[in-house]
Amino acid sequence: MIEWKKRSKRYQLGLLSFAFLTLLLGNSAWAGEGAHEMSGVGLLRGIGIAASLIGIVGLILVQFTYRARLPRGTYHWLLLVGLFILPITATTSTALTVLEGTKAVDACASCHVMKPFVEDLKNPHSASLASRHYRNSWIAKDQCYACHVTYGVNGTIEGKRDGFRHWLYYVTNTYQEPVKYAGSYPNSNCLNCHAETPKWQRVKSHRALSNDLTTDRVACIACHGPPHPLPHERKFGNPSNSIHFQEANDER
């Protein structure tokens, strides 16, 4: 009995130091990627990594090193943690990491077909809706997602299906350039921010078209677009894209 108590203290110490080391490792790995603040995605990623590492190392230790010395009850609890709780935590965290991480502009930018859009977004002399919202910080972060809100955890099934279709076309290289938006863009993406303001509500044309706008029979971008460079304004298929329609204006 006394031996087990001494051993349990050692186990506790061992487990604690192991957890601490894992956190340290995870922390440095995360810090090494240059994250300067605790973002939601970073936290989720950290939890996922920590849960995975603790789970793997812990299971190995429990099963192969300490099994004989563990009381049966403890062993089964540890298995529960290692085989169900930690894996669920890890998978949930990674899923959320992806769903949240894909909201970032850099995530959209990772496909080269999006290059003209992201370059335009960051172009200080572009007049597109995207670049103006970006340049004036009207949207604080995750600018692509802010208007294309069907992605993410709270997004629609439609968004997941679209994402799947985009991925499928992309990896099989069967997409048609210039890419075009399918169907009617949901005005709610614009109206959620804009329709609340008195400035918007005062405009006669908005009042006249309020029905058409809420049912997407008329698009906000019909009058206020284009949101992105037009198809003929993008150079496509070429990794080193540039927004050529802006160049003429730069020679003033």
Binding site: L209, A222, C223, L230
Partner: peptide, 18 residues
């Protein structure tokens, strides 16, 4: 109707156009 993206108005229309 929708604005012609290849025309000078870049796909834009006003309310009368719509």
């Amino acid at each position: 109707v929708k604005g012609d993206e290849s025309a000078h108005n870049k796909g834009r229309l006003c309310i009368k156009g719509l």
